[in-house]
Computed example of a mutant assay.
Amino acid sequence: MPLNSSSQVSATVSTTLPLSGKTVLITRSVGQSSQFAQMILATGANVIEMPALEICPPSSWEALDNAIINLSEFDWLILTSSNGINYFFERLIALEKDVRTLASLKIAVVGEKTAQSLKNHSLQPDFIPPNFIADSLVEHFPEQLAGKKVLFPRVESGGREDLVREFRNQGAEVVEVAAYQSCCPDDIPVAAELALQSGTIDVITFASSKTVKFFNQLAEKIFSDNSEDNQPSVVSNYLEEVCIASIGPQTSKACQKYFGRVDVEASEYTLEGLTQAIIDWAGNLR
């Protein structure tokens, strides 16, 4: 009897968690989903991971290496992602340099997670914009940009063109260099494929525009097998009953482009903010 009583209490506790009974598909990049998965699991949800993005080196290191060799020419170093930071410092070390090379530079980052990645290299950012989006970087920049030379290590393709354009409109000389590349994975985890085919997913989360684009590519492979005459299907048709959850405005734009809607957008553009937004969505269903 005590054993049965204990089991009942355990079951009661689990069902009172905010996302109990929900299945959440996480589409972060390979090797970067575990922290977010733990957050979602803590809410009582079932988590299925489907990495929709791989981070890899750029097609050439030449531009980044040349910029590192000439760091003394720059006034500011702009870092908008942990990936950019990690590859930048990888090349710094490969060129037999260290953080002392950055002594004459001011460093701006976007978001606390990016700031923490910089601190892992024993450096403090000189500027973090108040909002966790790149657009806020220009709006709140701490000094006049006219006449400043800015180094921007970034993704090789598909990055924030608006950010660079606005810096240049403010009079800055911006040198863009490829620090990494984002690619679509070749494979889909079996558990994710089965869950999408069976319609058992309640929420799909997106933490970047690229994961939206690459998820759509991967999902087309899955759903084309179910379409008549083996014609590619419209992925959005298969997601009609699924909540599309986005980390912020730029990601939401991609969701609108590929799926025609976004159901949840985080108020704070972080993984914690995205988790809370999904909890709020689930609460409104009750």
Rank of each mutant, 00 (worst) to 15 (best):
F167L: 14
S117G: 02
A179I: 14
E143N: 00
H121N: 12
E156Q: 05
Q170E: 13
E143P: 01
D186G: 04
A134K: 02
Q124K: 11
A115W: 06
V109F: 05
E139A: 11
H121Q: 14
E161D: 14
D229E: 15
A115N: 05
G111H: 03
F132D: 07
L105T: 06
A191Q: 08
A179T: 10
F141R: 00
L102C: 03
L92E: 10
N131I: 09
A219E: 08
L95N: 05
V212H: 06
S208R: 05
K113G: 07
R168P: 05
F127S: 00
T114S: 09
V150K: 05
E139D: 10
A103Q: 04
A192G: 06
A219M: 12
L95S: 03
E220R: 11
D126A: 02
G158M: 15
K113M: 11
D186T: 02
S136M: 06
E173N: 05
S157R: 03
P130N: 10
K148T: 09
D126S: 01
T114K: 04
S117A: 12
V155Q: 10
F132L: 08
A103I: 03
A115F: 10
N169T: 12
K148A: 12
G111C: 08
A178K: 07
S227I: 04
V99Q: 04
E193I: 10
V212Y: 08
S182E: 15
R165W: 10
V110I: 09
S117P: 00
S136A: 14
T211D: 10
F132E: 09
T211V: 13
P189T: 14
Q124D: 12
V99C: 07
D126I: 01
N120Q: 01
F127I: 01
S157Y: 02
S198T: 13
I204T: 02
Q144Y: 08
V174F: 09
Q124Y: 06
S122W: 03
P125N: 08
P142C: 12
L105P: 06
P189G: 14
T101G: 01
R154C: 15
N216C: 15
S182Y: 07
S208T: 06
G158H: 15
S122E: 04
V190N: 03
V150L: 12
V174T: 05
V155I: 15
V110M: 07
I204Y: 03
E173A: 11
E139Y: 09
I222R: 04
E156P: 00
Y180K: 07
